[in-house]
Design a protein around this nucleic acid. Structure first.
Length: 604
RNA sequence: AGCGGGAUGGAGCAGUCUGGAGUGCUCGUCGGACUCAUAAUCCGGAGGUCGUGAGGUUCAAAUCCCACUCCCGCUACCA
């Protein structure tokens, strides 16, 4: 019987088109899927979308569509993106799929019957205008972040999952399954937090209806994670792949996958997955990926820089899997030119060119010993993806050295060329899970071969026709860049900004009401603003070296109101004011309206 | 604040668990070789008090222990 391997990505939230973060998890899943196929295993690779939830309901509403219509329109964007990246998934699941809904209902009923789901009261912070709940974090000075109105505490009947009951069972499980939470560095973090205690989890809502209704109380819909997590189980109900070998996720959702998820499964009496691996985040030009600041790179942009394989290669090679990485166009181009083109592309070009002229003659490949397949396999299984690539590329270096040392262009030694061709074939096979397009191209140049572990052992057939053909990679010059260099203090860094993006910014005229020092900060002022219809706001600004408090008071300024709030020296800064500054930052002046206009007036 | 991670030639990393001359990789830089190859490739050089502590353990510390500084992440019903 064939050994099986089941790998998943999270189901993505289809409220916008996919970006590099989504791509990363999915590419990694594709790598593990293809690698295990190469090993001869029977593989199932599941990805998809989480169509349910309050946010989707709201966004759809805003766009004048039903949630189903809205998500139906976005899902193709995901599928197209995965196609562009050569993602070979076996199923694209949606939480609105019938089999998933049935599965979730069945399991809910089962856990309810068992007594692990009970009716209780959910007390939340509720804004009547939004008709929705917020968490403490969302609030701005105790007010709704959208309507700026005081929030009220509201109780609602809700079903709860007895998460608390599973605290010890989970800790025991972690102990017995050391590889369940990966990477290791994250494990202790989770364990410590679980030890601090688990609260029961509200898993239903009556305040909206876009979700799976609870089978034992139709007034409630199943809330977020319960529904979403079970996709992994629903996806292979008929397939005999459960339990999953590997859930690949971003580190932001680790908690849900290693606490809620196993607890749900325990309650439902279902076997637990083997491994959950949380990878790191990508920053973009050293800044956190953020839609509102234009710090996003979508899949079209990603692929347009240097092609799908280079994008895959870069993401898998640039950072240790699990660590955070920084994405920049320059870094991607450097890897593309330096590693894929100069090392691999050039090796293939020079060797196939020499073979076209001189031919090959079968002999034992003395280089083969330097391609350490067991080691590469071990590295991949240990999630050391960057090192596995490093290992493969050091073999490419060995091949280039071999050409250099033996000068086949002088000696016309057919045996040397055979060794090199056979080595290139092996390289293409092991690289296939990483950069499938390139491996296919190499296979074509060498007359075709399979990408399997067995093929790796088979000597190259010298009668096959070898063609140099087109180069594998095109050189990308600096000035060919598709995305422009970051401007130092710029808001948007993609080279063109849609009007839509611009209109996301809410810029207002505001009046400075009060200015205070911030203790422990030599540049910061705490500034209270009157923003007319938006009410009062507090911001922090580094104006101390440039303005005296008295000078600021009563001044009208330009204010960026919907910037995500952040804490500065313990004060939450709600937005930022606009100022112009000279190159060396010596001179900083505020941007103020040149005439009288009411506070809160829009700028744009 | 608590918990977790990090600080290594100009840049980015590995090495730390299991102590053994600052070892390695990529980029950059300087010099050379080659001219088959997409001006690609190959060889060699320069460059580091391994965050700080005239700390501790040890014959021996980047590695183990302690203290401190600075960065980053997480702190749950938000996918």
């Amino acid at each position: 019987m064939k050994r099986k391997f089941y790998v998943t990505t999270p189901i993505y939230y289809p409220n916008d088109i996919p970006h590099v973060g989504h791509a990363y998890t999915t590419i990694a899943a594709d790598l593990f899927s293809r690698w295990n196929k190469l090993l001869g295993k029977e593989v199932f690779f599941l990805t998809g979308t989480d169509d349910h939830g309050k946010k989707i309901a709201e966004i759809s509403n805003k766009n004048g569509k039903t949630p189903k219509e809205f998500t139906d329109e976005l899902i193709p964007k995901f599928k197209e993106a995965w196609e562009k990246l050569n993602i070979n998934y076996d199923r694209f699941i949606r939480t609105t799929d019938k089999d998933h809904e049935e599965n979730v209902k069945k399991i809910l009923q089962k856990i309810y019957d068992k007594g692990d789901i009970y009716l209780g009261e959910y007390e939340g912070l509720y804004c009547t205008d939004c008709e929705s709940y917020y968490t403490e974090k969302d609030l701005i000075e105790g007010c709704c972040p959208i309507h700026k109105k005081p929030i009220e505490k509201l109780k609602e009947k809700s079903y709860f999952f007895k998460l608390s009951k599973y605290q010890d069972k989970l800790l025991k499980f972690y102990k017995e399954n050391e590889e369940f939470i990966l990477p290791n560095s994250k494990k202790q973090e989770v364990i410590n937090r679980v030890k601090e205690g688990l609260r029961d989890l509200s898993i239903s809502r009556t305040s909206f209806d876009w979700g799976i209704p609870l089978p034992f109380d139709k007034k409630h819909v199943c809330y977020v994670w319960f529904d979403a997590l079970f996709n992994y189980h629903s996806g292979v109900l008929e397939k005999d792949f459960w339990p999953a070998d590997l859930h690949l996720i971003g580190k932001d959702i680790l908690w849900f996958h290693v606490v809620y998820w196993p607890a749900f499964l325990m309650a439902a009496g279902i076997e637990l997955p083997k491994k959950v691996f949380a990878h790191g985040w990508w920053t973009f030009d050293k800044e956190k990926i953020s839609k509102s600041r234009g710090k996003v790179i979508n899949i079209d942009e990603l692929v347009s820089i240097a092609g799908s394989d280079s994008a895959r290669y870069f993401l898998l090679r640039a950072t240790a899997f699990g660590d955070d990485g920084d994405f920049s166009e320059k870094a991607l181009i450097d890897r593309h030119n330096g590693e894929l083109l100069n090392k691999l592309g050039n090796l293939v070009s020079r060797v196939t060119g020499l073979v076209e002229k001189n031919g090959i003659e079968k002999t034992e490949n003395s280089l083969a010993q330097y391609l350490n397949f067991p080691k590469i396999n071990e590295l991949i299984n240990n999630f050391e993806i960057d090192k596995s690539l490093n290992n493969i590329f050091s073999f490419i270096d060995i091949c280039n050295e071999y050409v250099q040392r033996n000068k086949p262009w002088e000696t016309k030694d057919k045996k040397i060329l055979y060794e090199l061709i056979d080595s290139i074939k092996k390289i293409a096979i092991v690289l296939y899970p990483f950069i499938p397009e390139t491996s296919e191209k190499i296979s074509q140049k060498l007359g075709g071969f399979e990408f399997t572990k067995e093929e790796l052992e088979i000597d190259f057939d010298p009668n096959k026709k070898i063609e140099k053909g087109e180069p594998l990679f095109q050189k990308i010059e600096e000035n060919q860049k598709t995305i422009k260099e970051e401007k130092p203090e710029g808001i948007m860094t993609t080279n063109e900004v849609n009007f839509e993006d611009w209109s996301k910014l809410d810029l207002r005229i505001a009046e400075i009401e009060k200015v205070e020092d911030v203790s422990g900060a030599d540049k910061l002022y705490k500034i209270s603003l009157d923003v007319g219809e938006l009410g009062k706001r507090i911001i922090c600004a580094g104006l101390k070296p440039y303005y005296k408090k008295e000078e600021l008071k009563g001044k009208k300024i330009s204010y960026f109101s919907n910037l995500k709030p952040r804490n500065m020296k313990g004060i939450q800064s709600q937005g930022m004011l606009l100022a112009a500054s000279s190159d060396n930052h010596e001179k900083v002046i505020l941007i103020s309206p040149e005439g009288e206009i009411p506070n809160g007036s829009r700028i744009g």
